[in-house]
Amino acid sequence: MTGATTAVSALLLDLDGTLVDSEPLHRRGYESFFAHKGWEVPDLSVFTGRRAVDVFATEHGPWDGLDPEAVLAEVLEHVPDEAARAVPGARELIEAARAGGTPVAIVTSAGPDWVQRSLVESLTLEVDSVDLVVTARDVEDGKPHPAGFALACRRLDADPAAALAAEDSPAGVRAALGAGVRQVHGIGTSHPREVLLDAGAVEVHGDLRPLLPLLRA
């Protein structure tokens, strides 16, 4: 891997599966919910990186005909009430970006409460350690639509072509690419390397530590 040759305009980070290894918690929540309903557990990878309400609204399943928001509310009751483990390098990457003057945005399909809990409890950072948070509530269309990443670049006044993004899901990788981000790195916590590369990731890493050199112009 070579270091960056031009300055990074912004660091754009997914949350679940990228900064915090929360997918096991979510999986336990979905499995408990489906068991409670007596429904067959579907391929849960369809939820990774996407807003759950979008999945319930657009994908066929035992939830067909039900209110997506109501189904999500039931699912959340089954998710364990605990903080997720930080992905190695997450805190260091954010701190390095801020120290070097690179603006940092979290672009997530989660809600603001989970972002705050993850920053404070999982990463032991202050809420204002990032410059911007774009959550599921800030855009009409969720990942893989590029709206979230495009909004982050506009609000940061950052050139997306010079931005650096990290994502753990194919939906997230496609969303960042669709917003014009060229350097989209996959984090292999949730999907196989080949899946992220097929989605367009330039490289796939086991955690965030390999991204640290890329912040150096």
Results as ranks from 00 to 15, higher is better:
Ala171Met: 09
Pro146Phe: 10
Arg174Met: 14
Leu151Glu: 15
Ala166Cys: 11
Pro160Gln: 12
Asp159His: 03
Ala161Cys: 12
Glu167Gln: 04
Cys153Trp: 04
His145Glu: 08
Ala179His: 10
Ala161Tyr: 05
Leu164Trp: 11
Cys153Phe: 02
Gly180Pro: 09
Gly180Val: 10
Leu156Thr: 13
Ala161Gln: 12
Ala166His: 03
Leu177His: 09
Ala176His: 07
Ala147Tyr: 00
Asp157Arg: 15
Asp168Pro: 02
Ala158Asn: 09
Cys153Glu: 06
Leu177Ile: 12
Leu156Ala: 11
Ala175Asp: 01
Ala147Gln: 15
Pro146Thr: 04
Asp159Glu: 14
Ala161Asp: 06
Ala162Thr: 15
Leu164Gly: 02
Pro170Cys: 12
Ala165Glu: 00
Ala176Gln: 11
Glu167Asn: 09
Arg154Leu: 14
Ala165Ile: 08
Asp159Ser: 10
Gly148Trp: 02
Val173Glu: 05
Ala162Asn: 10
Ala158Val: 12
Glu167Met: 05
Arg154Gly: 02
Ala162Trp: 05
Ala163Phe: 07
Ala166Asn: 13
Ala175Val: 09
Ala176Trp: 10
Leu156His: 13
Pro170Gln: 00
Gly148Cys: 08
Arg154Ile: 03
Ala161Thr: 15
Leu164His: 01
Pro170Thr: 05
Gly178His: 11
Gly180Asp: 12
Asp168Gln: 05
Leu177Lys: 13
Asp157Val: 15
Leu164Ser: 09
Leu177Pro: 01
Gly172Phe: 06
Gly178Gln: 09
Ala176Ile: 00
Arg174Leu: 14
Ala147Arg: 03
Ala171Phe: 06
Leu164Lys: 01
Ala161Ile: 01
Ala162Asp: 14
Pro170Ala: 07
Ala152Asn: 13
Gly148Pro: 04
Ala158Ile: 14
Cys153Ala: 13
Asp168Phe: 00
Gly148Gln: 07
His145Gln: 05
Ala175His: 06
Pro146Val: 00
Ala158Met: 12
Cys153Gly: 12
Pro170Val: 03
Glu167Ala: 03
Pro170Arg: 06
Leu164Thr: 05
Ala163Gln: 06
Pro160Ala: 08
Arg174Cys: 05
Pro170Gly: 06
Ala171Asp: 12
Gly180Gln: 11
Ala179Asn: 13
Pro170Asn: 07
Pro146Asp: 03
Ala179Arg: 04
Glu167Phe: 04
Asp159Asn: 13
Ala158Phe: 07
Leu156Asp: 10
Glu167Ile: 09
Asp159Phe: 02
Pro146Met: 04
Leu156Asn: 09
Ala150Ile: 03
Ser169Arg: 12
Ala176Asp: 04
Pro146Ser: 07
Val173Pro: 07
Arg154His: 13
Asp168Thr: 03
Ala166Pro: 00
Pro146Tyr: 03
Pro146Cys: 02
Arg154Pro: 01
Pro144Phe: 01
Arg155Met: 14
His145Phe: 10
Pro146Glu: 01
Ala165His: 10
Asp157Ile: 04
Pro146His: 06
Glu167Asp: 08
Ala163Arg: 00
Asp159Arg: 06
Ala161Glu: 14
Leu156Ser: 05
Ala165Arg: 08
His145Arg: 15
Ala163Trp: 02
Leu164Asn: 10
Ala179Met: 01
Ala152Glu: 14
Arg154Glu: 15
Ala150His: 02
Ala152Ser: 09
Leu164Tyr: 13
Ala176Lys: 13
Ala162Met: 14
Ala152Arg: 14
His145Tyr: 08
Asp157Cys: 13
Leu156Val: 10
Ala147Gly: 03
Leu177Gly: 13
Gly172Thr: 04
Phe149Pro: 06
Ala150Leu: 14
Ala166Glu: 08
Ala150Asp: 01
Ala163Met: 03
